[in-house]
């Protein structure tokens, strides 16, 4: 039991880091226009970066700062909610570019969606397992 929750915690940290820095550097949105100005998708990228940073800090705190199962379970629950927010950013809360063939639609949006869903699922599992761990001990 113990081992699996540790693995889940670490996976959550990695996913959060991926969401945060991956969106910024790997699967970023469209580049600047020729005149140097940014398109709307850039601000979606910035928002996901910020949210990812919060997720990363929280997941690190959950993994390393607390030993108590209840606290860990609570933080895991908050991770789910924040990841759901990240999920909604591209094209729903902040609109992306004109064509779905552009980078922000083709690359950034699906990547953010997949990672957010993974965080939500892992967060759910971590939330339940930490809670169980707490009641067991």
């Amino acid at each position: 039991m113990k081992k699996i929750t540790v693995v889940l915690d670490v996976i959550l940290c990695v996913l959060s880091a991926l969401l945060c820095f991956g969106t910024k550097f790997l699967f970023h949105a469209c580049g600047p226009k020729e005149d140097g100005s940014w398109m709307a998708c850039h601000w979606a990228e910035q928002a996901v970066f910020g949210i990812g940073l919060v997720l990363l800090v929280l997941s690190l705190v959950m993994t390393f700062a607390f030993k108590d199962g209840k606290t860990k379970s609570g933080i895991a629950l908050s991770l789910e909610g924040i990841a759901a927010l990240a999920l909604g950013i591209p094209n729903h809360l902040i609109s992306l570019c004109m064509m779905n063939t552009m980078r922000c639609h083709a690359v950034m949006k699906p990547a953010v969606i997949v990672i957010s869903i993974c965080i939500i699922l892992c967060g759910m599992a971590a939330c339940i397992l930490h809670r169980k761990e707490d009641t067991e001990s």
């Binding site: 469209c30 226009k33 020729e34 398109m39 709307a40 570019c97 004109m98 064509m99 552009m102």
Partner: peptide
């Protein structure tokens, strides 16, 4: 360029 984007349609 259409609206926000540099790509034409």
């Amino acid at each position: 360029s259409s609206g926000c984007c540099s790509l034409s349609v």
